[in-house]
C-alpha cells in the first residue's frame, strides 16, 4: 500500500488527525492538583482515560480493512459558501443587529445556493424576520441583539 493510497482513505486520515489532537490534549491537560481525599481522582484522570480510549479506537480504525469503493473528492463550493455566510452572520450580529442582518442573510443564502425565485426569497426574508421578532421579543420576551438600531 503506497503512502498516497494510505492517505486517500478518509477514515484513516480522520483517525490520524484524532490521534495527533488527542495526544496534544493529553499533554496539555498536564498534571492537576493531587486530590485531598483518599480515593478521589485527580481532575486530569478521567479526561486522560477518555483520550487514551480515543487514541486506541483511532488506531483500530486505521488498521481496519477498508472497502475498496472510490471516494470522490468534489469540493462543495456551495456548502463552503453557506458556512462562510453563517460565520459572517454570527460575527456581525451583535454589531449590526438582528433586524438589519437577518433579512440580508435570508436573501443571500438562497441566492448563493442557486435559487431563482427572487420574489419568494424576498417575501420569506421579510416574513420570517417579522415572525421571529414577534415570537421571541413580543411573546417570549427574549432580547435579540439590537446592534445598530440602538439599545
Amino acid at each position: 500500500m503506497t503512502m498516497t493510497g494510505f492517505f486517500q482513505n478518509r477514515d484513516r486520515v480522520f483517525a490520524l488527525v484524532l490521534i495527533v489532537l488527542a495526544s496534544i490534549f493529553y499533554a496539555l491537560i498536564g498534571d492537576m492538583e493531587e486530590p485531598y481525599s483518599p480515593g478521589a481522582l485527580a481532575a486530569s484522570t478521567y479526561p486522560r482515560l477518555i483520550l487514551a480510549c480515543i487514541i486506541g479506537l483511532s488506531c483500530m480504525l486505521i488498521i481496519q480493512p477498508v472497502s475498496s469503493e472510490q471516494q470522490t473528492t468534489i469540493i462543495p463550493w456551495k456548502g463552503l459558501a453557506v458556512i462562510l455566510l453563517a460565520a459572517g452572520y454570527i460575527f456581525l450580529i451583535e454589531r449590526v443587529g438582528f433586524f438589519v442582518l437577518t433579512p440580508v442573510f435570508l436573501l443571500l443564502v438562497p441566492l448563493v445556493v442557486g435559487y431563482r425565485h427572487y420574489v419568494a426569497t424576498a417575501a420569506s426574508a421579510i416574513l420570517v424576520t417579522a415572525g421571529l421578532y414577534a415570537v421571541f421579543v413580543l411573546v417570549l420576551n427574549i432580547p435579540l441583539p439590537a446592534g445598530l438600531l440602538g439599545d
Binding site: V82, L106, S124, L132
Partner: peptide
C-alpha cells in the same frame, strides 16, 4: 416549502435559538 428558503430559515432560527438560550 422550497428547500433553499427552508434552509436559510433554519440557519437563522438556529442562530437565534442558540443566542436566546442564555443570552
Amino acid at each position: 416549502a422550497p428547500r433553499p428558503l427552508l434552509l436559510s430559515v433554519i440557519a437563522v432560527v438556529s442562530v437565534v435559538g442558540a443566542y436566546g438560550y442564555n443570552n
